[in-house]
Design a protein around this nucleic acid. Structure first.
Lengths: 88, 88
DNA sequence: AGCAATTTGTTCGTATGTATT
DNA sequence: CAATACATACGAACAAATTGC
């Protein structure tokens, strides 16, 4: 049983919003909304799309980073996959 | 060159407060302020001691958790070391 | 070189929820 | 039940890095 990529955030329920968003984003990546090596939506965009605080969106992204699903670069964005080995 | 366990937070300088606190706490643990398996000061206590926001203190503790220096238990505290293998 | 726009990083404050004692 | 301690969420502001003009 996986999460629906088109699900919305349920502020009631037992699962916290940031965990829900983390699952939704992973589902969207798996579905192909954003390809490997390409940037996903910006934090500001996700805030607008899901009606969450930026701090909550960042908390969700932290989960994905820990899981190695995405990696971030300040000033650029959040990319699908893992950081390149030899980066310049 | 290691960090002074008695250092205070410098809100100017290049190093961010949460990184400074992370280093200070590691120095305090190394010095023996808190023994292995014992709880360190609570987040509220650290907020008072270092004059930082709780979110900043938590950010510093996140670093220590990632590094395996401490582990946390909701409702109890933050302990020195790593979580016991078989916990009940 | 400078400047503005975009995006992630850090910090503060506040409030409420959950778990343990 | 009350007190303590960590968890989650919202809002706001400014800093730092990147990009494009």
């Amino acid at each position: 049983m996986s999460t629906d990529a088109d699900a919305e955030i349920d502020h009631e329920g037992p699962v916290t919003p940031y965990r829900q968003l983390a699952e939704i984003l992973k589902a969207r990546i798996a579905r192909g909304d954003w390809a490997e090596g390409r940037p996903i939506a910006s934090e500001t965009r996700l805030v607008q799309e899901y009606g969450l605080a930026r701090s909550t969106v960042r908390r969700a992204l932290d989960v994905l980073v820990e899981e190695g699903v995405v990696w971030k670069v300040q000033g650029r964005g959040t990319y699908v996959g893992q950081p390149p080995a030899g980066n310049s």
